[in-house]
Structure formats: C-alpha cells, structure tokens
Design a protein around this nucleic acid. Sequence first.
DNA 1: CGTCATTTTGAGGTATTTCAACGAAGGTGG
DNA 2: CCACCTTCGTTGAAATACCTCAAAATGACG
Lengths: 244, 244
Amino acid sequence: MARTAGAEQIQIESGPLIRAIQFEHNAHGSSQWLLNDSQRTKLAQLATRVTFPARSIAYREDTPLEWIFILGEGVVKAFRELPSGKRRVTAFLFPGDVFGLAENGRYVNTVQTVTNATLYKIATEPLTELLRHDPDLQFQFLCKVTHALRQGQRHAIVLARRDAAGRLAMLLSMLEENEVAGSRTGWIQLPMSRTDLAEYLGLSLESVSRATNALTRRGIVTFHGGHAARVIDRAAFDKLVTAL
Amino acid sequence: MARTAGAEQIQIESGPLIRAIQFEHNAHGSSQWLLNDSQRTKLAQLATRVTFPARSIAYREDTPLEWIFILGEGVVKAFRELPSGKRRVTAFLFPGDVFGLAENGRYVNTVQTVTNATLYKIATEPLTELLRHDPDLQFQFLCKVTHALRQGQRHAIVLARRDAAGRLAMLLSMLEENEVAGSRTGWIQLPMSRTDLAEYLGLSLESVSRATNALTRRGIVTFHGGHAARVIDRAAFDKLVTAL
DNA sequence: CGTCATTTTGAGGTATTTCAACGAAGGTGG
DNA sequence: CCACCTTCGTTGAAATACCTCAAAATGACG
C-alpha cells in the first residue's frame, strides 16, 4: 500500500483525539470528544502515527510496557489468553479509545487489530511526564479510564445474562451507540468475526450463530454479509435488551 | 454508641489513603498504598469522615453526583438494579478504594455498606479543583481507576466461567489477595452475605450454596460461620482457580 | 475455479435455574 | 425466658439453555 499524497490529504485529523464522558454534567449533548487544540498538539508531538493491517498484534499480555496507544481509526480488540488456550475478549476498542495502560510495568491484555487501523503510540515516560505537567490533559485521561471502567461493568452485566440472544442484543445495542457519531445509516457495523463475538460474549461460536439465527427468525434483527446488522423490530429489540 | 476519647485514640490514620498499583514497574514489593503525607493532608482538609452502620446506602444510581468517596474501613458493595428487579453486584470495595466517580453528573451504581464502615466523602467541585492543581495527586487517582478497570476485567472473566465452584474459587482467590495486607491468619474473610456473593458471581443463591458445598465436600475449602473460609488443599484450589 | 477458513446446522450431554419446602439464626414482644 | 416472626441459607427434583462433538454449507481469495 504505497502512501500517496492524496491519501495523506484525506487525513483530516491533526492528531489523536480521546472520547469519553465527563464526571459532571455538561450542557445537553456534551460533546464526548475530549481534548482541545493545544492538548492535541502536545500529544501529537509525542505520538508516532502507525498503521496496522487487520489481525496485527499491537502488544502481548505480560510483555514489558513500552507504548501507550490512542486509537485513531479502525477497530481493535483486547483479550486475555487463558491457561486452557481459550480467549476472553475484554473489550472492543474504537477511535478515541486509549489502551496500553499497564500495571507494574507489564501489559495486562493482548491487543490485536480487528480491521486495518491507524493508531498513535506514545512512549510511556514522556506521556506520564506530560500528564504530570498538564493536569487538564490528565483529567481527560482520568475521565476516559473511568468511562472504560463503566464499559467494563456493562460487559460484566452482559456476561451475567443466561440467554445467548439477549447477550448478543446487548452487544449490538452497545455497538449501535458507538455508531451514532457517524452517519445515521441505521446499520450496525460488525467488523469483528463471529469468533470474536463469541469470545466477548462468553459463548461458544455455535451459540453465537444460533443467537443471530434466533434474532433473525424472530424478525428482530437482520444480518448482512456477517459484518452488518440492522434492527427491524425496535420495540422487540429494546425489550430483549432490557429484559434482564 | 457514645464516642469516647479512647475510641478516638484508636484512630491511627490521619486521613484517607488510596490503594492501587502503578503503571510502571516499581522496585520489588512496590508499596501499593499511594499518597504521601502532603497529599493525604490536602485530601483530609477537603474530606469529611463519616461512619455508617452495615447495610447503609451511600448513594443510589442515577441520582445527581454530590460526593466522591474514599473507603477508610469496612467493606462496601457497588451494584446496579436491573429492570427485572434483580441486582448485579459490580464490585466489592475495600479500604483504600475510591468510588462515586459519576458519569454526566449522575452516579452509575448504588453503593451500600456491607459491614460497618468509615468513609471519607469529598465534594466533587473542590476535589476536581484539587486534582487540577496537583497533578501528582491526580496521577494516583488515575492509577487507582486503571486498577479498578483491571478488577472489572477479572470480574468479567469470572462471570464467563461456566462452573459455579470455579467462579466461587476465583472470588475467594481475589478476596485472599486483599487479605494479604493484614495479618496472615490463613483465613479469608467473607463479610458479605450469600446473596451478595450470588449477585457478584452471576449465580442463583442456591447455586452459591451448592458451590460452597462442593468445595467443602471435595476437601478444598472449609467455611466457618458463613463469613470466613480457609483453603485446605492449596494445590487443588489453585488448579480450580486457573482451570478455565 | 479450487482450496482454506469461517459459519451454520444437528444431536446428545451437562450444568445451572427455577420452584418448592425445609432448617437455622436473629430480633421482638409478651 | 420463651414463643413468634422474619430473614437467610440449605436441600431436592424437574426444566431449560448452553456446550461439545461432528459434519455440511457458505464464503473469501488466489
């Protein structure tokens, strides 16, 4: 993939953005995209913009902390390898998400791109240094991580459900919320594979298949090409999502 | 309960502490108790120390953000009320844990004390103000929330397990790690009720009962009085915990 | 157009849930 | 001090939903 001048021009962004929600109440709508120009510039100066093809590993769990990442474009997944060899996807990450915040100098999850992705990587040292000198910027990170914590809790609620169709519906609902930022096509993009879904939902691959089937059969959702879904019966969908 | 001078003297602490783990590698052992004296003092100046009897509600989900809390002593649980009326415990919180970080000005969980508890409450405004002026202190919060995020991910892994005994064993293992700070009695304290355990593990109350039974019958763990447990067969226990 | 990977479908096994009833524990009032 | 009541925890049996194993079908890609 040769990098053409034209391709560069398409790049409207001038640096990393972070997406989250503030602690305190913001005026209606409350732009969920954090970072002002100054902060973006400072981050951009530290960051290296890298592009990965789908299925690339950004880093592996238990390896030494090196970079902290901000996702620019594309979708990635964070997962853990279990002793049995099975995988548990702990989160799907979207543009504006931060990852690579390690613990005791080691990454906790493995992160792999789901689609082609561009991400900003920043060496740990300079970033923590910057955060210590720019409290407002750091506060954006604090909001971001807190938001990620909420997402994790929602994930836990999904996993505690007993019915596969309900779990899938909740995931679709969460993905749909992400969509809102973009064009309102009514379609929910599903860039990840069925296996990825299964590992996120804590189901077997077959159960995911049967769940999509059930949703289709009941006329609630349609799937197209395996990587897009659309809610047909909104009432039934919402009922299923909140039926827990 | 009259407050005697003697009782006050028992209070060794001079203010709130936070417990977490740093991003980067620390020298061995790395005291997981954050905050230096200066930071504690500043927090203490903003904080109000309050004591609650067991089963008190600190705040309810969806109510307006008011205080942010740091747990001093005791155990509390955070949970969400589901449409069906069921509850999902999202976390058990221990001394040094922070809670009340809301989203868009509203609390996300309900928090209720499990035991008698003393906690430090800090008005949101002054705290965020302090954080914006003390980046190092804020960094401790950032580490703390990140650590909470990891806990949440472990919780998700627990929930994705299929066997009740294994889930319970993982929870016991996590509680045991918390214990280490205190006296090495070999006992794992279980201040929460069976119902609390069930709501955390995503199991029915009956299944928790059967799971404790299974662990006892298999000679892996013994339970005493319902609020304490001890690992008898460490090898089998570890095997069960990591058998996923 | 053939090959490999992914997804779907089928049938039986297993673990948890649910419903119901019993037992234990703690607190209250007579 | 004891009876009563309410909450919590335990035990049993049937039903449900997912998992596993196996094989066919679909789709992607060179």
